[in-house]
Structures are given as C-alpha cells and as structure tokens.
Computed example of a mutant assay.
Amino acid sequence: MHWIWVLIVGAIIGAIAGSITSHGKSMGCAANIVAGLVGSSLGEALLGDFGPQVAGMALIPSIIGAVIIVWIVAFFVNKMD
C-alpha cells in the first residue's frame, strides 16, 4: 500500500512542477510520476528533508527537485526540436 501512495504523491509533485514551469501540458501521467520521484530524490539529496512529509517524501525539497528535473528535460527536448 505504501508504494501506491508513493506513486500518487510522485504524480502530484510532478504535476505541480509541470505547472510551475508551464511544461505540464506536454507531460503525461507517467512522466509526472517519474519527474516527481526523481525530483524528490534530487531535492532531498540537495536540500535535506525539511518541511511536511507525505509517503516518506519531504514536499518542499521534492517540488524544488522536480522543478529542476522538468527544466532540464524541457531544455534538452527543446534542443532536439
């Protein structure tokens, strides 16, 4: 049951990051989950685990990390076009 919550929270974090960077329209549900999970790992590695936590993920560093991931991916996707 924990993994289901991790996927749901990862999708929400990815969707928030996509809407902050205005690249959320081009991302699907799977990309939101990946951006949320990878962003959570990156954000917590760089910033620690402060703030409220849901499903073992600190929300503020996770969103910041996901925004960084979305910007990086969008940069490379735009370079390929």
Rank of each mutant, 00 (worst) to 15 (best):
G48H: 01
A11H: 06
W71Y: 10
A30M: 13
V34A: 08
D81H: 15
P52D: 01
E44C: 00
A45C: 03
A31D: 15
L47S: 00
P61I: 09
G43W: 03
P61F: 09
I20L: 13
I12V: 12
L7S: 14
G28K: 03
G65P: 07
I33D: 10
W3P: 03
P52E: 04
D49M: 04
K79W: 14
S26C: 01
A30T: 13
N32S: 09
Q53E: 15
V77C: 06
A66K: 00
G36M: 06
A55C: 08
W3I: 11
I68Q: 03
V70H: 00
A30P: 09
L37V: 15
A11Y: 08
K25S: 13
L47R: 05
A30Q: 05
I16P: 08
I68W: 00
I69K: 04
H2T: 15
D81V: 09
G10Y: 05
E44G: 01
H23I: 05
L42R: 01
M1V: 14
G48M: 08
G56H: 07
S62W: 06
A31Y: 07
F76H: 09
S62V: 11
A66F: 03
I12S: 05
G14K: 02
S26R: 07
G28L: 08
S40L: 00
V34W: 08
S22E: 13
G43D: 12
V9T: 15
V6G: 01
A15C: 08
M1P: 15
S22I: 13
W3D: 15
V34G: 07
I33G: 02
W71M: 05
I20D: 12
F76C: 13
F75Y: 06
H23R: 02
L7P: 00
S26L: 03
L7E: 04
N78V: 13
S26D: 12
W5A: 05
A45W: 15
F75A: 13
G18M: 10
T21E: 11
N32E: 10
D49P: 03
I13P: 03
S22N: 13
N78F: 14
M27D: 04
E44S: 01
V54E: 04
V77F: 11
V34L: 14
I16E: 07
I13N: 10
V77H: 02
L46M: 03
G36T: 12
S19L: 12
A35L: 09
V73I: 15
H2E: 15
